[in-house]
Write a protein that binds this DNA or RNA. Sequence first.
DNA 1: AAACAAATTTAGACAAGACTAAAATATTTT
DNA 2: AAAATATTTTAGTCTTGTCTAAATTTGTTT
Lengths: 219, 219
Amino acid sequence: MLSQSIEDYLKAIYEVETSEGKVSTSALSEKLGVSPASVTSMMKKLSEKKLITHKRYQGVKLTPAGRKIALEIIRHHRLIELYLKEALGVPWDQVHQEAEKWEHVLSEDLEDRIDKFLGYPVTDPHGSPIPRRDGTMIVRECDALVDVEPDTLVRVVEVSDHDPELLRYLGGIGLYPETEMTVVSKQPFKGPIIVELTGKEYPIGRNAAKYILVEKANN
Amino acid sequence: MLSQSIEDYLKAIYEVETSEGKVSTSALSEKLGVSPASVTSMMKKLSEKKLITHKRYQGVKLTPAGRKIALEIIRHHRLIELYLKEALGVPWDQVHQEAEKWEHVLSEDLEDRIDKFLGYPVTDPHGSPIPRRDGTMIVRECDALVDVEPDTLVRVVEVSDHDPELLRYLGGIGLYPETEMTVVSKQPFKGPIIVELTGKEYPIGRNAAKYILVEKANN
DNA sequence: AAACAAATTTAGACAAGACTAAAATATTTT
DNA sequence: AAAATATTTTAGTCTTGTCTAAATTTGTTT
């Protein structure tokens, strides 16, 4: 059995690996809220357990075994997020923090029951794909909203679940996965991006727009 | 925030206090599966936090603050047990171990949602009363099955949730809380107790019968 | 290419919570 | 009531996961 700490590190490594390619000590340090020194000492332990490969002063990489565990935890996390929303009506900005704790103590049996209850879902409430039990996961082509040219009709694919305040704002304007909207303009001087949905225009900050993934809608 | 360990100790102290009156180091040691020395050192910590009172070589007692926390954890535990059974169909012999882990990471908000979903229930799947949010709990008069005289019609009130095998046996013969049955006989030489329900007779070991609480049915 | 800055690792300390072995106290037996 | 036994506590150690401060390596300037 792996400790909650180890599971958290593996998950963080997976996420950094996916979003940035390279996994540096400082990236993990910031993501996990621990000191760089703590990260290094955990990296040593994970190397010994053959869950990652680590070259001193270069980054870190998951081994297949490490990746499998990371995906199991992420599967727990995302199933729980969706379950809490569907079964108990927890708002989408709150499901993340609840899942963050529960994911580490979910049994395989309960995982299967939840999966079945939800009808073997493919994405969580934020549009993130749910890894399958066998450790595979569907990857979709999509762009960050911040990179989309004005006058494009897009469909929201995924929204990062890490900032509850952003999620509340987006929920408030009706912006969810599957929502279609038009990018109206990008204000100059790093100003906000203006999108139009349900006939109204809303501003979305450049920084927030990095965390909203969209695909071009075939209009 | 209290550690999971501290919560487990407080819960164990509450349970021993309720079932045996005196709370000894050795009782906690056995219940928690840790050495007596570990118990003593934790007792020191809990005393400093004013959650228990501890007289050297005499036992230990919960303070009102300690009892409140113990009851909060037990409330979590029992709500979760019932929720898992009702919402996800987890069999009653498995809900305990799942709740044992989840109880420590359940938020107040989710606790309330589950409570509401279940219609503000009063007992868990084993018939144990669920403490209310304010720390009060209904106590019922009942006898251990092992102490009941033959030829009595009784109603099952509560069954201990600690032995999955016993629960599977009892479930198999249809013995649940609320079930009515007749104590037919007590076999000599510490032999089993014979009960009759749904027209059939079943043996129940003396030891198991200590953990089945019943009340006389007004027949 | 040397100097500076940034990132990473090492060294050493600490808190929590467990352990074993030995000492102290209670309890039971004779 | 003294001896024997059982229980509890103390003393000291270990592991996990964190920290700070200092040393090392890498990357970036000039």
